[in-house]
Simulated assay, not measured.
Amino acid sequence: MTDRPPAVAEAGKASPRRPRWSGRTRRDFFVFLALALPNLALIAVFTYLPLINNIYYSTLDWTLGSASATVVGLGNYITFFTSPDAANVLGTTAVFTLVTVGGSMALGLLVALALNSKVRGTTFARSAVFAPYVLSGVGVGLVWLFIFDPGYGVLAWLLRGIGQQSPQWINDPQLSLVMVILVYVWKNLGYCAVVFLAGLQSLPQDVMEAAALDGANGFRRFVNMSLPLLSPTTFFLLITTMLSSLQAFDLIRIMTPLGNGTSTLIYEAYLQAFGAFNRAGYSAAISVVLFAILLIITVLQLRFVERKVHYS
């Protein structure tokens, strides 16, 4: 019986396997833990733990400051959705969110188109447009409250100069909501403008020049080419601005302290906990409702809206 050739014998041998837990792999794993664990611990302590506690508090009949509480299960949720104020709060939240998101994005896109032109002074204009976004919401609210005040505000003084009376921006519930929406859009359109401007400047110029050579005018290039190519930017802004609007608090708190026509979900939760009622459990239930709405909107956007996004 002849021996196998050396080449065949070598091929028949199993190649040595690299150990799965080598020294380098172990070192990389510990480096990952050293970098990730502090961040994960902070997220767990300051995000998920308060969320779990808030869900638990929402099942209690608890007055803020009281040493005792009664478990009521879903009683707070039933009370909220069966109360006559629920429809008003949810409707105000929907109107505020839709108008502020749509207004900020539409005006931001128009401002971005203007700032994208190569004219003198655009650098200063970009800074001026973006400045309100980084200002304190409390400071912005106080300044605009002075402007809208129907008694001694700047707008009332201008209207009296032409023989007109100032609308009751603060006392009329409908006008109060309009006032807060206008200020919120003014404050946040700079953010949308800067993000849209970055998207416009990243568009492929060779494609735009080819379309211009084919005879497409500026409007057709914008509608048929720029807007589809801006869909990732639009999708990003849609998510961020909607989540921000649903959680808007500082301007509402400063400009309408009693929530006169401006009681969104987050502000209603604040009024119930820290206003005259001190209903901490009921406030926690409203906060959980807001969290559920935020989660559903985000999932729906990622599930359906992203399908229409054109990534390059």
Rank of each mutant, 00 (worst) to 15 (best):
S226P: 04
P84A: 12
L203K: 03
S68I: 07
L145S: 12
N217G: 15
V305Q: 15
T59S: 10
R4I: 02
I170P: 01
F249S: 04
I239M: 13
Q205F: 04
Y133K: 10
P38F: 04
V8K: 04
I286E: 07
R253I: 10
D28K: 09
F146N: 12
P232S: 09
Y77Q: 04
K308Y: 13
A11R: 06
D250R: 02
Y77V: 05
A9S: 15
I252N: 01
Y48E: 14
C192L: 03
V143G: 08
W157H: 11
M242P: 00
L60S: 02
Q272N: 08
I147Y: 11
L159D: 13
F219H: 13
S226K: 07
P50I: 12
L229V: 00
D61Y: 09
N39R: 11
V99G: 09
T123H: 14
R20M: 07
L290N: 05
E268W: 03
E209H: 03
T25R: 13
Y48I: 14
P173G: 00
S263N: 15
G23W: 02
V119I: 14
S58F: 03
Y311S: 02
G151Q: 15
I266R: 01
G139E: 13
Q174F: 13
G161W: 08
T63L: 00
W21D: 09
L229R: 00
F277V: 08
Y282K: 07
T233W: 03
G139N: 13
T256W: 08
A211G: 15
L42N: 12
A285P: 11
G259R: 10
G103P: 01
S263L: 15
Q205Y: 03
A280W: 07
G102L: 09
V134S: 07
I296N: 10
L159P: 11
R279S: 12
L175A: 14
T70F: 05
A36Y: 13
R221S: 08
F96Y: 08
P5Y: 00
